[in-house]
Design a protein around this nucleic acid. Structure first.
Lengths: 303, 303
DNA sequence: TGTGGTTACGGGAATCGTAATAATG
DNA sequence: CATTATTACGATTCCCGTAACCACA
């Protein structure tokens, strides 16, 4: 059992990420021939060609490409092991990486991080699409803030519901009448400004619309929450967003009324992580603090 | 980044598993002082005491014990990486480890393995309780044969339903009358011989009994399928088991009749594995072969 | 001719085995 | 004194950096 050498695997990944041996060597603070030799050695060990010459540089072979995900998992697992050791030694977690959508980041995660102290672990945020949450967890993020109920066997803590609000300009009749909430049916026939399907909130809205047989007169797609707000304020239609009001936009809760009564349309936010994570206890405690923060700031409705 | 050394981690696990440095060194085919030194080096690297002297030998410290699972995961991941490389190189999987209950092993897995050829991967079976299936997958088993619908985000292939049969001796009136199947209600008041709650089939039976408000006159618990059969043949009651008839026991299908008609009470067998397994395709193909084997041999009912 | 990958050589660190030493029951 | 862990020393192997060399645009 000539055991796999993790350092070599990291070298491999560095070359993959950088595209050239020279660049990777530079980043790894080592001489380029040394790195070149290590790659060769790895190829000899695995008895596989990982790279092939392409012009004067190297390109991954099919086999090389196939091994990248497994190699990454392995390296992440190793880093986790070291972090677990540090946790045992110092009794505290130094650094946690959280995956979140840009909307979650801007809306509440960054403000929450601002409330943390040096005694807390350092929270590093990584922007991810909703649909890569589980993947990001397997690729090194310690936990994720997800706007969907987590699938799979993830451990999770519900944070509450983040309401989807409709925004109109303050000259709009709804604003003048001081309307605070409306059933979905009230929005039939209005021009809407929405996110694209890169956002979970769009799926949520589409689902509710089809259930109530409601259609907009027109749909403008825009993925930036601030721009949605700006367009609404400029009178181009009704903007739908989970973000907080800006530019004096007038917020209206969207009610999803079904048999069991009306309740605000909203995303079910969760903190999720892989079971068995070395800092499970710390993550769970942090999740509860985020939940309390969301309640206290009135950002999310109770769970 | 003084990167974790996998060899050292394996040494650590060997000492953990063996209890003594001497024994582990022996198994690792290396001199004992070398191993002792490696353990010390690991402790220095992690800045953690992993073992403490207990008499003349070593015992794990709390920190050491805490690191064992993470270390094991890491080593398993590394072995997987090597297997993935071998698969890419040779185009075939050399060895797969399957987790299964002893009942599954005896009833159909061992017979199935007997039908395989040297061209197939070598299938090594590991006996596991139903309730540790997911855990065993994370600890190195490549796939599991589970009598429950797999939870979590496991990939899976249904194998069919393994009927739970009632067995009576051939002198029993049901046997003399040639009864082949009976509704659950017919078993009210009979003395029953069942497995303990270590078996999923027991939960299944208990659930069906409570739904139909049926109770046995007495319950004898016995975890060995052959003994259940033997007791039934000896006239001690009605044995319930997923195993095939033995000792001339007379089998009767147990029907679970609900609104949608009667269907045989049975376990939903599945093959399950972790998504992203390096030999996913091979496992899936193997699962289909097991499914066909079960159908062809009449061991399971269609899915 | 510049950019990038490979081969050749010498020094230093890591790791092993043998042998000697210390501690426990 | 038998079992088990640790320390001491010499030999081997691994790995890095420098320097020279090769291949493609």
């Amino acid at each position: 059992m000539g055991f796999m050498n993790l350092r070599r695997l990291q070298y491999f990944l560095a070359v993959v990420d950088h595209g050239t041996v020279t660049g990777a060597a530079d980043k790894l603070h080592m001489a380029q021939p040394a790195l070149s030799r290590q790659i060769k050695t790895l190829e000899r060990e695995l008895k596989l060609e990982l790279f092939e010459p392409q012009g004067s540089r190297l390109a991954l072979t099919a086999a090389g490409r196939a091994l990248v995900p497994a190699a990454r998992r392995l390296v992440v697992e190793a880093l986790d092991f070291e972090s677990a050791a540090t946790l045992l030694r110092t009794g505290k977690v130094e650094r946690l990486t959280v995956a979140a959508t840009s909307a979650s980041l801007r809306t509440f995660l960054a403000p929450f991080i601002a409330t943390m102290t040096p005694a807390d672990p350092q929270l590093v945020a990584r922007e991810t699409s909703h649909f890569e949450m589980t993947e990001s967890l397997r690729q090194g993020c310690d936990f994720a803030v997800s706007p969907q109920a987590p699938d799979g066997d993830l451990r999770h803590v519900p944070l509450g519901r983040m309401p989807v609000r409709a925004y109109v300009s303050k000259d709009h009749e709804w604003a003048r009448d001081g309307v605070r909430q409306l059933p979905l049916s009230a929005f039939a026939g209005v021009p809407a400004i929405l996110t694209s399907h890169h956002s979970v909130s769009r799926f949520l809205l589409d689902d509710a619309l089809s259930r109530h047989d409601v259609t907009f007169s027109s749909v403008t797609e825009c993925d930036d929450g601030q721009s949605i707000m700006a367009l609404a304020v400029a009178g181009h239609g009704v903007g739908f967003s989970t973000e907080r009001p800006l530019y004096g936009a007038h917020p209206i809760l969207v009610l999803d009324d079904d048999d069991s009564g009306a309740r605000p349309l909203g995303l079910a936010l969760h903190v999720a992580w892989l079971p068995g994570h070395y800092a499970e206890a710390v993550i769970e405690e942090l999740a509860l603090r985020i939940r309390d923060f969301l309640q206290a700031e009135g950002i999310a409705l109770g769970a």
